[in-house]
Write a protein that binds this DNA or RNA. Structure first.
Lengths: 237, 237
DNA sequence: CCAAAAGTGTTCGCCGTACACCCATGA
DNA sequence: TCATGGGTGTACGGCGAACACTTTTGG
């Protein structure tokens, strides 16, 4: 007899609940922070906009469910993702009592599987133009944005939203999008370069200017080494 | 027919889960940060130490469940409490698949109902001497401490752990306990008083010294007013 | 009168912030 | 050659950090 069965009677008297996972998926493109949203072609709330979600299965952890749902929509694995909050208002979902656990993910918008996204009727929407969302999904989005703004200051999470090679103007533009604020070029560069975790490449990006801007790469190992020495990532905003 | 029934069939195919709420309850006494822990006189894991917990009922929100559990143990309402994290490893509870949502609470250790606490076989334990805990409760405690340390720097949550009248040496001792660090008396006072949210009372506390230390009170209204003007609470640690 | 805790100001260095001009190049 | 975006350095003020002596009073 497994230990799992030994006390099952003690739990039996309690209620069980549906548990959903909803994903707030951020991307960055054309100088704007964007969210991947679903135009629902299924019930409930068919025809309305919502976050990508799904139900927690019997034999998967919460994190596994989050990654599964993200993978099913984007074809991406090994993505920066973290749990945000659990939402348990009794009537948050008019279809049934469902507890939802929100996750937020940062992805490089170039990498996702466009076919899968199309199949799911998912669309990138700039955060300045988010359509009305079902249930409490808008609240989840607001929490996620708040969290992103907290984290981007003190952890190198911004790089998750960019290609592995990026230019400093791109990086600055990303931070400006996250904080809806223009930043001083000289101060921004001084700040980020002084941390010593960016590698300058020999190559230039020439799409956006005649002069061209040097590519940089985030050096994960360097960052870990610095962290181990008591260093803290910090961008002045 | 209520909308609640309209889509219930769509959900039916999914699994339901037990949801538990576990509370990390902090108090401050004798210069030490303490946790309220249960010596379990019930199954499962009878005789072992754990956090206070309970199951989510059918018609209560997560927050309501958290407050119910806290109230049942301490007799306290209107307590500072916030959701921490959801824990969903498949085998985290060997008795059954249970998703647990942790909450952390800050209480004034003088105010709790000692009878109730005794009935539940609950005990205050300094954070430096936490006994082994069941399941992943130790992990929850570690997360809560981390969260407390983050919050106490930037929000006036420390006062929740003190009586409404307190002295500056008491307050400093609290911060020293939270961060396991001795602080400079002059800098600490300058810092906290310059924010202008503490009211000095005419009364002195004379238990701890011959000279006596003036009582202060946290002025909630003042704090809200300052916050509305764009002020941010900040203690240099 | 003395031990023990409360209370009080100043100096220094660094970091965040403001700010303006030259460079490279494709059209 | 000129328009466009990329790239660079310096000066100032404020805040966090370090630091030592006086005051009060019960025993």
């Amino acid at each position: 007899m497994t230990p799992r069965k030994s006390h099952v009677e003690l739990y039996k008297k309690h209620h069980k609940h549906f548990i959903a996972i909803d994903c707030i998926i951020f991307g960055f493109d054309e100088g704007e922070l964007k969210l991947l949203l679903i135009k629902r072609n299924f019930e409930p709330a068919k025809g309305q906009w919502s976050l990508m979600g799904g139900f927690l299965d019997e034999n998967e952890s919460l994190d596994e469910a989050g990654y599964r749902i993200l993978y099913n929509l984007t074809g991406l694995k090994d993505i920066y993702m973290s749990q945000l909050h659990s939402h348990g208002e009794v009537n948050r979902d008019p279809g049934a009592r469902v507890i939802s656990i929100s996750y937020f993910a940062l992805i490089n918008i170039q990498n996702h599987d466009e076919e899968l996204v199309k199949e799911n009727d998912a669309h990138w929407r700039p955060i300045s133009k988010i359509p009305p969302l079902i249930f409490d999904h808008r609240h989840m989005v607001d929490l996620a944005l708040e969290q992103l703004r907290k984290e981007a200051k003190i952890k190198p999470v911004g790089f998750e939203l960019l290609p592995s090679k990026f230019t400093l103007p791109q990086l600055q533009s990303l931070y400006e999008a996250i904080y809806s604020k223009t930043l001083d070029k000289r101060n921004f560069r001084k700040n980020i370069l002084s941390m010593g975790m960016l590698e300058k490449l020999d190559e230039k990006e020439k799409e956006n200017s005649k002069k061209g801007a040097f590519y940089y790469r985030f050096n994960e190992d360097k960052y870990k080494e610095l962290t181990a020495r008591g260093f803290y990532f910090n961008i002045a905003i």
